Amino acid sequence: MPVFSPDNYQLMANAVLVLHAAIVIFVVGGLLATLLGGLLHWTWTRKVWFRAAHLGAIVFVVFESWLGIVCPLTTLEQWLRVRAGQVVYEGDFIAYWLTKGMFFTAPAWVFIAAYSVFGLLVVVSWIWLPPRRRAAPT
């Protein structure tokens, strides 16, 4: 059996979809965690590494939407599904349900506006609840 059989391509496509869903959860959940962390004084939500990763992720999403670029993870997943002999997003439980939860049908401007507003909220959270570096020992 070849290393890259249709089953292996399907497995890799599902892994890319799970990674994509995790990034979406990180972007959306990261803002919620930042806001809750500010109210509940959670120190981990003010860590520079967390906030920088979160800001970087939403900046990437906003710029790709402004530029009309399809997400590289979506492109990779679809490429893998074609290699697996699948019709995109059909026939697989994991792919079906994750896709239903992540992708919606709407005009492009709706997504561009939503991503931009969400990105603006992340920037506002940086101003309202700025990240903190660990204090230097005295």
Results as ranks from 00 to 15, higher is better:
89 Y>C: 06
30 G>E: 01
103 F>W: 01
128 W>E: 12
8 N>D: 08
56 G>I: 03
37 G>T: 07
129 L>V: 14
137 P>I: 01
123 V>F: 00
48 V>M: 07
28 V>T: 09
97 W>P: 04
14 N>G: 07
52 A>H: 01
107 P>F: 08
105 T>Y: 10
116 S>W: 13
26 F>G: 01
127 I>W: 15
72 P>I: 01
17 L>C: 13
110 V>K: 05
44 W>M: 02
115 Y>I: 05
64 E>F: 14
13 A>P: 04
2 P>L: 09
5 S>T: 06
68 G>K: 06
106 A>F: 11
15 A>C: 02
65 S>K: 05
34 T>A: 08
44 W>Y: 08
9 Y>S: 07
106 A>I: 10
84 A>R: 06
135 A>K: 15
9 Y>M: 11
118 F>W: 05
14 N>V: 02
71 C>E: 13
133 R>E: 00
116 S>C: 10
100 K>I: 13
87 V>C: 00
81 R>K: 13
53 A>L: 08
112 I>W: 01
23 I>D: 04
44 W>L: 05
60 F>S: 15
114 A>Y: 11
103 F>Q: 08
118 F>G: 00
98 L>D: 11
96 Y>P: 00
3 V>S: 08
127 I>D: 08
61 V>Q: 12
131 P>W: 09
65 S>T: 10
80 L>S: 06
17 L>A: 14
124 V>E: 05
53 A>Q: 02
2 P>K: 12
61 V>I: 12
94 I>T: 15
119 G>T: 04
130 P>Y: 11
108 A>D: 15
28 V>E: 02
119 G>C: 04
40 L>V: 10
14 N>Q: 10
110 V>Q: 02
95 A>G: 12
56 G>C: 03
21 A>K: 00
101 G>I: 14
91 G>M: 07
66 W>S: 12
81 R>C: 09
85 G>P: 05
79 W>I: 00
135 A>G: 09
88 V>Q: 03
132 R>Y: 11
39 L>W: 15
82 V>S: 01
50 F>Y: 09
22 A>D: 04
50 F>E: 05
77 E>Q: 11
55 L>D: 07
35 L>D: 13
63 F>M: 10
4 F>Y: 03
78 Q>A: 13
5 S>I: 00
117 V>K: 13
5 S>Y: 00
130 P>F: 11
97 W>F: 10
70 V>R: 15
77 E>L: 07
78 Q>M: 09
17 L>R: 14
11 L>G: 02
119 G>M: 02
98 L>C: 11
129 L>S: 07
43 T>K: 14
34 T>L: 05
51 R>L: 00
34 T>H: 06
72 P>E: 02
53 A>W: 03
78 Q>R: 10
132 R>S: 15
130 P>C: 07
39 L>A: 11
81 R>A: 14
24 V>F: 15
132 R>E: 15
104 F>E: 05
135 A>R: 13
14 N>S: 07
94 I>S: 13
11 L>E: 03
21 A>I: 01
43 T>C: 07
20 H>S: 12
48 V>P: 03
52 A>L: 12
10 Q>N: 03
30 G>Q: 00
23 I>W: 13
63 F>W: 03
70 V>F: 14
16 V>E: 06
4 F>L: 10
69 I>Q: 15
16 V>N: 03
118 F>T: 00
